[in-house]
Amino acid sequence: MEQELISKKELLEMTGISYGQLYRWKRKNLIPEDWFIRKSTYTGQETFFPREKILGRINKIKSMKDDLSLDEIARHFMPDLKQVTLSKEECLKRNIVSELVVRIFTEQNGEKNVFTFDQIFQLFVLEKALQSGQISLEEGKLLLKTLVLHAGGLKGKNGELVFIRKMGVSAFILAGATEIFFDPEVNVLLRLSLADLLEELRLRME
């Protein structure tokens, strides 16, 4: 998950906003907490941001802030998707999930015609994992079980799904925003950022 970073100083210079504005926007949840990356440099602690994401976000806020209140802008970035539900047909039609994935879900959780947002997200992650070609159908079933069990605990964090295999035995790991190190014999077959997938899903659902 290497990405280009921008320092706070450089960011303020490029965008012309002040420290006060940046802190206010953070307070109003316009900028997610985990974009603030603290690093030690020779001048002491400095804060960095993922370059493209933060520049895009600040330009958007700047263009909207004359017409909308900060709270309204915050809702725009974080729409309340918890309330959203979609019918099974709708999910299939919009190509969010495939029939196969829905079938796995039905096997495990019984027949459902309407999915909640959390469920759609779990299905979407499974769909992506299967599409990657790295996991088998059986492993996909295991993945869905893992997601149902633990995805709630990762809410709001920069979670990551890691799929590993060692000596033919496979395992899924759902990790919070931390670095993971493996022993050399471990094959990392798949790494998916849940935050990225969530954003992708949001776009598709709009």
């Binding site: 100083k9 002040s18 420290y19 006060g20 001048t43």
Partner: peptide
């Protein structure tokens, strides 16, 4: 860090502002 800073009796490594 802030826009307008008026400080007394502060011990800090870095102070940044307008």
């Amino acid at each position: 860090e802030g826009d307008d800073l008026d400080l007394e009796n502060i011990k800090a490594d870095v102070v940044r502002g307008n």
